[in-house]
Computed example of a mutant assay.
Amino acid sequence: MGVFVSIWDKLFRKEDNNFKILILGLDRAGKTTILEKIQGKMEGEPVPTIGYNHQKVVMRNVSLDVWDLSGQETMRKIWKHYFVDTGGIIFVIDCTDCSRIELVRDEMNYLLAEPELLEIPILILANKQDIPEAIGVDNLRKSLGIVEEEHKRPIKIQEASAIQDEGLDSGFEWLIKILSNEEDDD
Rank of each mutant, 00 (worst) to 15 (best):
H54C: 01
Q72Y: 00
N61S: 07
E73W: 03
D65P: 08
S63I: 00
D106W: 06
D94A: 02
L69M: 09
I78E: 04
S99A: 11
V92C: 09
P46C: 10
L111A: 03
P115C: 10
D68K: 09
Y52A: 13
N53Y: 03
W67G: 12
S70M: 01
R105C: 10
F83Y: 14
C95I: 03
H54Q: 02
L103R: 01
D65L: 04
V58C: 04
G88C: 11
L69Y: 06
Q72M: 00
N61R: 06
I50M: 05
R60L: 01
E73Y: 05
K77Q: 14
L103F: 02
A113R: 14
Q72N: 00
E107G: 10
G88M: 07
P115T: 11
V47L: 12
Y52D: 04
H81I: 13
L69T: 04
I101Q: 15
C95S: 15
L69F: 05
Y110A: 12
V62H: 00
I90R: 03
Y52C: 11
G88Y: 05
V57C: 03
R76Q: 11
P48F: 13
P46M: 09
Q72W: 00
W67V: 13
V66N: 04
A113F: 05
H81F: 14
H81Y: 15
R60Y: 02
M75Y: 12
M75Q: 04
P115Q: 13
K77N: 13
P46I: 12
C95Q: 08
I101R: 15
W79L: 09
I90F: 05
P115V: 08
H54P: 02
M75T: 01
D85T: 14
G71A: 07
F91A: 04
N109C: 14
I78D: 03
I90V: 15
Q55W: 01
I89W: 02
I78P: 05
V92Y: 07
I90Q: 03
R105K: 15
I89R: 02
V66W: 03
V62A: 00
D94Q: 02
V58D: 03
L111V: 03
F91G: 03
R76I: 09
D97F: 10
V84I: 15
I89G: 02
K80I: 12
E73D: 11
N53S: 04
V57N: 01
D65E: 09
I78M: 13
R76F: 07
L69P: 05
D97G: 10
D85H: 15
D97I: 06
V66T: 05
L103I: 01
T86K: 05
V57T: 02
V58A: 03
C95L: 10
L112Y: 12
G51D: 08
E102C: 05
D94T: 02
Y52L: 14
I101G: 15
M108D: 08
D106H: 15
R105W: 10
E114Q: 14
Y82A: 13
K80F: 11
M108F: 14
I89V: 11
S99P: 03
M108I: 15
V84H: 14
T96P: 09
E73A: 12
A113Q: 14
R60F: 01
R60K: 05
K77G: 06
S99G: 05
V104P: 10
P48E: 11
Y110L: 15
P48Y: 11
